[in-house]
Design a protein around this nucleic acid. Structure first.
Length: 302
DNA sequence: ATCCAGGAACTGT
DNA sequence: ACAGTTCATGGA
């Protein structure tokens, strides 16, 4: 991690394969998003570090990400954690140079990575949020998934209002673990989604399911297996979470509808490709399937 | 209206 | 192992 603490602001120096504006475009993809806001080229996000709510205003300079604190300056140790958070959120530990090296020889990705150069997987560092968001997205259109997330956050999340704008935190698993199915049914969650999400919340609150434990597992299939063993988490959700929360670039949600649509479009097909066809296309992507998928998703909007 | 959505569990073979 | 069915609701 490469950054400087200037006391009242942070300056973070990302690797060269990074473009803040590309990341902002991804972050701004939905009107329904409630967990961050974008205004005048700045990204605002509320986070919580050790019981302290911290509003971040994030912008970019030529070679750095600038973070300021509109409400109050946190302590030095907290500022360090903020820098950690930003580094993790934008997946800055990955060496995208290796990914781009691979895509030079790839008929599908070569053009795409050129167009969106510097885009990184925007992560969901909170495991509970990542799992819940994936479950919400199962088999419903994304617009409605955002609506459900908004309702969940506004009912059970913490918030802070600054200059007339309200900023939200995703609810904690402790809070959701206390709910009954009917509580979420009222928000128009299906019984299944309600069961799955409360179940995950209970698993995390009991300490059985933690991000740390998952990160300790050495083999990809071990992580995948332990996630899939949880009710409501299938292969797609496991891969999505491994990609968005656990930073493993081997993750490949191969059954994803968005991926299929992107490939259909890129290849000019009449129909969506089959799983077997995708497996063949993806042979070159070994080790970078998550980024290949993410860039293909990006190619879908605009 | 009709189809489908960033699937998963369940059931039957 | 594998295929078909059910769940559930809104968006386009």
């Amino acid at each position: 991690m490469n950054w400087m603490d200037h006391g009242n602001r942070l300056e973070i120096f990302p690797p060269k394969e990074f473009d803040f504006k590309e990341c902002l475009i991804f972050l701004g993809r939905s009107e329904g998003e409630i967990l961050h806001q974008i205004k005048d080229g700045y990204l605002y996000k509320l986070i919580k570090i050790k019981e302290e709510l911290i509003l971040l205003k994030i912008g970019s300079e030529e070679n750095s990400i600038q973070v300021v604190f509109p409400i109050g300056i946190p302590s030095e140790t907290t500022r360090e954690k903020v820098a950690d958070y930003i580094w993790e959120w934008f997946d800055l530990d990955q060496n995208l140079g290796d990914f781009y090296e691979m895509t030079r020889k790839d008929a599908i990705l070569d053009q795409i990575v050129h167009t969106y150069y510097g885009l990184r997987i925007i992560c969901i560092p909170d495991l509970f949020e990542a799992l819940t968001w994936a479950i919400l997205g199962q088999q419903i259109n994304l617009t409605f998934a955002y609506t459900l997330k908004k309702r969940l956050v506004e009912h059970y999340g913490e918030s802070l209002t600054y200059e007339g704008q309200t900023f939200w935190l995703f609810p904690t698993h402790e809070k959701i673990a206390e709910l009954e199915i009917e509580d979420l049914r009222k928000l128009q969650f299906s019984t299944r989604k309600a069961e799955y999400i409360i179940g995950v919340a209970e698993g995390m609150t009991s300490g059985q399911l933690t991000k740390e434990k998952l990160l300790q597992l050495k083999e990809y299939h071990q992580v995948h297996q332990s996630l899939v063993s949880i009710r409501g988490i299938g292969a797609w959700t496991a891969d999505y979470v491994i990609m968005k929360c656990l930073h493993n670039t081997n993750a490949f949600p191969i059954a994803d509808v968005g991926l299929h649509n992107a490939l259909k479009q890129q290849l000019g097909l009449e129909r969506k490709p089959t799983i077997k066809e995708i497996e063949k296309l993806a042979v070159n992507w070994k080790g970078w399937e998550a980024y290949a998928t993410f860039y293909l998703w990006r190619s879908l909007y605009e």
